[in-house]
């Protein structure tokens, strides 16, 4: 048995991966569990690809080794593909059905990736594909997609949903508590069962 449950959250700088990882960390504190995490700061946050490592019950370093993550949560399809090697074969992926085409594609005239071909390349994993934008809108704010994703992933995370909800309330700005709580619940209810 691995001593820690290792989650990798990936996305694009500005999508709120750090907030999502903060919620998980705070939930560990509430449940009196140890936790280690690592984040991207600095230059990469300018629209670049970013990753947050969270190790629930972690006691040592904060980095997850490729091939050993227990769960991959991706805020963008292309980022799911970029980091899929962090999961073992058949590993669990929760991905937002959202694709921001990197400017590099236009500038270097690369093939524009599309949802279907990316999802095909992700076959072999245990994938749940979430329409986080729609659920976030339903919750009241498109910006709550990161919390929707967390809700959708929560069934696979060894933390109690009540704890996670409490952690959401503690971590998000006061004015957005209601929207984000709704986002978490919608993600949890409608997310987990979804298949591509």
């Amino acid at each position: 048995m691995k001593p820690s449950f290792d989650i990798l959250i990936v996305g694009i700088g500005g999508q709120g991966t750090v907030l999502a990882s903060n919620v998980l960390g705070e939930a560990c504190i509430i449940e009196n569990r140890t936790v280690r995490s690592a984040e991207t700061h600095g230059m990469a946050q300018r629209g670049g690809s970013v990753e947050s490592h969270i190790r629930i019950d972690g006691k040592h370093g904060s980095l997850i080794v490729p091939g050993t993550a227990d769960l991959l949560v991706a805020f963008d399809l292309l980022e799911a593909l970029r980091y899929r090697h962090y999961l073992p074969a058949g590993g669990r992926l929760i991905v937002n059905r959202n694709l921001v085409v990197p400017t590099s594609v236009y500038q270097q005239a690369l093939d524009v990736p599309d949802d279907e071909s990316i999802l095909a390349a992700l076959a072999g994993l245990d994938v749940a594909c979430i329409d986080a934008a729609a659920l976030a809108r339903e919750a009241g704010n498109i910006l709550s997609q990161n919390i929707v994703m967390l809700g959708a992933a929560s069934a696979d995370i060894p933390l109690r949903p009540e704890t996670l909800e409490e952690a959401v309330r503690r971590c998000v700005p006061k004015k957005t508590v209601e929207v984000n709580t709704a986002a978490f619940r919608l993600g949890r209810e409608k997310g987990a069962g979804t298949t591509p």
């Binding site: 230059m43 300018r46 670049g48 690809s49 085409v101």
Partner: peptide, 19 residues
């Protein structure tokens, strides 16, 4: 021991970029 896990090849890069 850790499995050899290589990233998928040919994923378009997403470097940081001026806003």
């Amino acid at each position: 021991t850790f499995p050899a896990a290589a990233p998928v090849q040919g994923v378009p890069p997403r470097p940081p970029i001026l806003c």
